[in-house]
Design a protein around this nucleic acid. Structure first.
Length: 586
RNA sequence: GCGCGCGUAGCUCAAUUGGAUAGAGCGUCGGUCUCCGAAGCCGAAGGUUAUGGGUUCAACUCCCGUCGUGCGCACCA
């Protein structure tokens, strides 16, 4: 068990000894500012507040019952009631030593593994993937990788938009203005063109809009011609998706599009009606407020002119068609039946907050028993904005295509690699540029807090210096360079930690698991980015101050080599968890 | 109109959710390769966390007001 966990359980036991009735689940220990110690707990202060006790006195009582002598130096009570812990050097060394033996990599698998469906990426058929898709795809992929690493069972599901109103327009456009040659050259661009053109024509001509609707109805009724066209569009789109996902290194366990759930939509609505959860209104069917929530918190109510009026979640349109609320409910039904997940995580734009609020409440009413076992989570993220602070568009009015962004990233990286290593064979430079360029883009998207909107900038997205993936990859490559120069292999080296920078680095390595758990707990990959950036920084501090190959003696050299090897492993594992590759040289 | 967010250094963003002296990158200025990779490192300047109140041992974080700003408001997803 990692020292931090040992301290935590000892502390919880001590608190229970002093306050038998207290809930100790919030009694946590976390890494802290080195000037106070290695770990700290502030839990006693909030506990004292709840129970109206003197925090210093509580701390004194708890410390009297606390035995962490196996892992810590003397425990200090500081400030208003902080507990500061300082690790014994021998314990730190032992943790590193066991990691060096391959027993762990500073994290523990979850004690109670969960089954989690992660729903992410979700591009639309017949539309190009653009920069916006990097958010759902990158965050979702990093989260599913983190959950897997921690030992959970994950179902990565790409809920592709392959069924909906847009197909009415696409079918009409296909029949009227499709340019076959263009379709063969650039299928997605052509599909986008017919969609846009037809949409514009429908805006101008309502009769044409009706025609498009008719095409959709025919498709949904199984009309052979329309189904064939629709399938062709899907095949073309899937080629595009596959290319992008291959480049990004993103894999899904299943990719069940919206159309997959089509057969169940009718019965979902029927079921909702029978149970009295949904009712008819103005020819449509919707889920209405059940009055259990105060109006302000009730997503099924909206205030108009000072009065609360119904704002239902429609599950059947007045024309008899279904919409995405229906699909999402059917999808939940399928996922429950197929995987019995502990949680379903939706990595979707924050703008759909209202939709998910309605969806989750409807689910709880529809499947009350299941909703106790399966938690639905909307992992929302902010928008990508242009320089003007408005949702991102290029000058021509289109968003930047994801493929173009990746191309540019590799191009810029290639230029730098060629400058830095002109003697390297071109194929190798290309491969390094691919890893670095892609890493830069992914990391740039993962670094900010997911809920913040961020302003898109080519230079920031593709930056290769500063707090970027290449900085982390560089630290890794430097370590690899040391090992290329080191002669012979070092096995079971004894680790000694004496220099300040060695201790700082070693202690930070121990926090890898804490960080991974925080990422999984709050669905925030940026914690891992920051952790790795700090790790690379602390490694560099060590590297600048502590000679490895030219260490003063053999024992120090071997110990430092072991520390380097562990750092490289954590860097690589951490980057991999973010979906970012490493290179041996760059 | 109603609802939901956001406002932190010149710029772009963090701050593990109420913890001790708010941190990075970019940009600017200065230093640093005869010594394991300078995509690096060291230093300097830069802040009344929009604003006014409140809650408490402790507030960027919670509550109320104000200003600014973005998003969402049945039959698109």
């Amino acid at each position: 068990m990692l020292p931090q966990k040992q301290i935590e359980s000892a502390l919880q036991a001590a608190v229970s000894a002093v306050l038998p009735a207290a809930d100790v689940s919030a009694v946590l220990v976390r890494p802290c500012d080195p000037k106070f110690g290695d770990y700290q707990s502030n839990a006693l202060m909030s506990l004292a507040k709840q129970l109206k006790l003197n925090p210093r006195q509580l701390a004194t009582d708890v410390v009297a019952k606390l035995d962490v002598s196996a892992v810590c130096e003397k425990v200090e009570i500081a400030g208003a009631g902080f507990l500061n812990f300082r690790l014994k050097n021998s314990v730190l060394v032992a943790a590193l030593q066991s990691a060096a033996r391959g027993e762990h990599l500073f994290f523990a698998k979850a004690a109670a593994p969960k089954t989690v469906v992660v729903d992410f990426s979700s591009p639309n058929v017949a539309k190009p993937m653009h920069v916006g898709h990097i958010r759902s795809t990158g965050i979702g992929d990093a989260l599913q990788r983190t959950l897997r690493l921690l030992g959970h069972t994950v179902v990565a599901d790409n809920h592709i938009g392959d069924w909906g109103t847009q197909f009415g327009l696409l079918l009409l456009g296909w029949k009227k203005i499709l340019d076959r040659a263009a379709l063969e050259r650039e299928p997605i661009a052509e599909l986008e063109r017919i969609y846009k053109t037809t949409n514009a024509e429908c805006d101008a001509n309502p009769a044409q809009r009706e025609e498009a609707k008719l095409e959709l109805v025919k498709l949904q009724a199984g009309d052979a011609e329309n189904v064939a066209i629709w399938q062709e569009m899907i095949v073309l789109s899937q080629k595009q998706f596959a290319t992008i996902y291959r480049r990004l290194g993103v894999k899904f366990d299943v990719a069940l599009g919206e159309s997959f759930y089509n057969p169940w939509l009718g019965e979902v609505v029927a079921d909702l009606l029978t149970r009295g959860i949904a009712r008819e209104s103005e020819g449509a069917v919707g889920v209405f407020s059940d009055g259990t929530l105060p109006p302000k918190e009730d997503p099924f109510l909206v205030s108009r002119d000072g009065e609360w009026v119904a704002d239902p979640a429609l599950v059947r349109k007045s024309d008899g068609g279904f919409n995405y609320m229906t699909t999402d409910l059917a999808t939940i039904g399928y996922r429950l039946k197929t995987w019995s997940p502990t949680a379903i995580v939706y990595v979707v734009d924050d703008r759909q907050f209202g939709h998910f609020k309605k969806l989750f409440l409807t689910f709880a009413r529809w499947k009350a028993e299941d909703s106790k076992r399966t938690k639905l989570v909307h992992v929302g993220f902010g928008k990508i904005l242009g320089d003007d602070g408005k949702p991102f568009k290029t000058r021509s009015g289109d968003t930047v295509k994801l493929g173009d962004l990746l191309d540019e990233a590799e191009k810029r990286a290639f230029k730098i690699v060629s400058e830095k290593s002109p003697d390297m064979p071109e194929a190798q430079r290309k491969e390094i540029a691919r890893v670095i360029g892609l890493g830069a883009v992914k990391y740039a998207d993962l670094l900010p807090n997911r809920q913040s909107d961020y302003i898109f900038s080519w230079d920031k997205m593709l930056a290769l210096t500063g707090n970027t993936a290449p900085y982390l990859q560089y630290a890794y490559a430097r370590i690899k360079s040391i090992f290329r120069k080191a002669e012979g292999t070092i096995q079971n080296a004894e680790i000694h930690l004496a220099a300040e920078q060695e201790l700082i680095l070693a202690k930070h390595l121990l926090n890898f698991g804490f960080t991974l758990e925080a990422v999984a707990e709050e669905y925030r990959p940026n914690y891992l980015c920051n952790y790795l950036y700090e790790l690379a920084g602390k490694f560099t501090g060590f590297y600048e101050n502590c000679p490895v190959l030219k260490a003063e003696d053999e024992a120090t050299r071997n110990s430092r080599l072991a520390l380097c090897a562990l750092t490289a492993q954590v860097l690589q594992q951490g980057l991999q968890t973010l979906g970012i590759e490493t290179v041996e040289q760059m």
